[in-house]
Amino acid sequence: MSDARARLLSLLSLLQTPRLWSGSELAGRLGVSGRTVRRDIDRLRELGYPVHAEQGGMGGYRLTAGAAMPPLLLEDDEAVAVAIGLRTAAAQPVTGVDEAAVRAMGKLLQVLPARLRRRVDTLTASTVAHPFSLAGEAVDPDVLVVAAATIANHERLRFRYRDEGRHVEPRALVTAGRRWYLLAFDLDRDDWRTFRLDRVTAVAATGARAATRDVPGGDVAAFVAERTMRMAPTYPADVVIHAPAAQVVDRLGGPPPGTLTDQPDGTCRWLAPPDTLEWHALRLASIGQPFDVDGPPELVDHLRSTAALFQAATAGSTPRSATRGSRGSPR
């Protein structure tokens, strides 16, 4: 590829970031003169890319929506992400979307290099989408687009979060549960923060370069999961389990958090430190022994609602063992 064509593709890749680029910024990124940038901008316009120019000291260039959609320039990982997203959309029961997704996916896979098609096939084969997953709080698509672009371009980001201005160096977008989160280093607070994207507004890329920082622990997903767990309401628990402590420890594969004390009547008392109701319920279910909850009332309510769900799921069902018994015992 000639230097001119490679430079044109690099210019297009920069302009696809949703922000205003000054001529001097573009010239600096591409290592050319301002006059060359202007010529390349004219060439992109001839190819059908609607590049808008704003005059004045605060002016610059941005790629805008036009009457027709010109070709998109995608990096390898972006093309793989789009292909996987289209395959997921094709399986969704939304009128019209599935057919359009199949057509778009066919066009994309036709031009993907073989190495990227193998990546798409590998990832989709090992990924299972839960058919009953529920949509979380709505996220503005522009927020996702701008945040993703600043992460890819290692730029700082400004936005409002719960009506408070934030200035961050974005690190990653993470889905957890039914929500989107932005993991970023908050420059004003000099610490890492996790932001729910449905609460983010007025996003703007600043153009300033973000520093390269390592996420504590090195695992982005684990770090976000730990932070979101902190934001969930937690409660201590006081439970009497109708089994000796040794049996409880054996069933759990180790002592549970908190204190586990044998009682004179053969039961044991578990004083659990603050945790989510879901985790308390999961541990109690794993023990497989009768128990009484002395507190908190929120745990009692959670167990009651969970029991109602299981009761409704099994109402009217006939155990398979009973069915086999009516036909005679297997040999």
Rank of each mutant, 00 (worst) to 15 (best):
3 D>M: 10
7 R>V: 04
9 L>R: 12
11 L>G: 03
13 S>L: 05
19 R>N: 03
28 G>D: 13
48 G>A: 00
51 V>L: 00
54 E>R: 15
67 A>R: 14
69 M>C: 12
76 D>G: 01
78 E>P: 02
85 G>R: 14
86 L>N: 00
89 A>N: 02
99 E>M: 03
109 L>N: 10
112 L>A: 00
116 L>N: 12
120 V>A: 02
126 S>C: 08
137 E>T: 07
141 P>C: 05
144 L>M: 11
146 V>H: 15
148 A>H: 04
150 T>P: 02
153 N>Q: 15
156 R>D: 07
160 R>K: 03
166 R>M: 00
169 E>T: 04
172 A>N: 08
174 V>Y: 15
175 T>L: 06
178 R>P: 03
187 L>S: 03
193 R>S: 08
195 F>I: 01
195 F>K: 01
197 L>D: 01
199 R>F: 13
203 V>F: 02
203 V>K: 00
209 R>P: 02
212 T>G: 12
216 P>V: 12
218 G>D: 01
229 M>E: 11
237 A>E: 04
237 A>Q: 04
238 D>G: 11
239 V>C: 10
240 V>M: 07
250 D>Y: 13
251 R>G: 02
254 G>H: 12
257 P>Q: 06
272 A>S: 11
277 L>W: 11
289 Q>F: 12
291 F>L: 11
306 T>C: 11
312 A>Q: 14
330 P>H: 15
